[in-house]
Amino acid sequence: MSDVTLDKAPVAPREETPFRRFVSEFMSSKIAVGGLLVFLVIVVVALLAPWIAPQNPYDLGQIDIMDGRLEPGEVGASGITHWLGTDDQGRDMLSGIMYGLRISLTVGAGSALIACLVGASLGLLAAYAGGRTDTVIMRLVDLQLSFPTILAALMILAFLGKGIMNVVIALVIVEWAYYARTVRGSALVERRREYIEAAQCLALPTRRILFRHLLPNCLPPLIVVGTIQVARAIALEATLSFLGLGVPITEPSLGLLIANGYEYMLSGKYWISFYPGVALLVTIVSINLMGDHLRDVLNPRLKK
């Protein structure tokens, strides 16, 4: 190896960058790859919904209540075969699910990502800085965690009006505290470790210690919470819709479709709620299969 020049090093075929190592480790699990593939299919379906869906379920001019509650496989007045049936408004469920995926993914991933960024930064800061900063942040966390989600969402949505972005904002406000609390918890332990003390002795900048040293070691619990929170955000959005506070009824998310169909469960019109439920489930399971494996890959303590 000693005669390999620096110039050639980057193009050397078996050179191991951390990213490649990460990719190859991730690829070693069939389940994780399966989860990734399913998730990619879902994302593609969601992105292409306007082109591949049989109907635009948001256009009131295209749906007809005379087609309401058709069973799966029936043909509606407009000549469309409704493979998954229609809801009470005559909305094609398949199209509704495709469009609903877009909204649920935006809401779930968007809110989890933003909440994680905000929460983790504040949690790290609290643990590392300690003192007054810690106090203020943790009291904020207390305040947030003690505020029932539904009330917070009701107030936020009352201020801002209904809408997908507003639901995301509400979920971020509701969820950041979980990340903050989790990161602070593990960071408190890690902070006392020798490697941090060593880094401090080397007089490394605070930002560097925080994000290069402390954060990676707090990642495993953060990823556990994160994967759970994506799922939770999607489910929470469904619950908000159930309580009439979620996305607009003319642009249903998966959760709203389920909530809508919920009322028809007792009367045997299962498809209005069942198929969106399956879509929700598959989405969340695929995210979690990836998340589970990611956690193991990213966990420095599980490395041999």
């Binding site: 009131l60 001019g61 007809d64 209540i65 009470d88 408004q89 009439g244 009824i249 003319t250």
Partner: peptide
């Protein structure tokens, strides 16, 4: 909520 959607149509 359903009635106003139907009227919207």
């Amino acid at each position: 909520g359903r009635i106003i959607q139907a009227i919207g149509q």
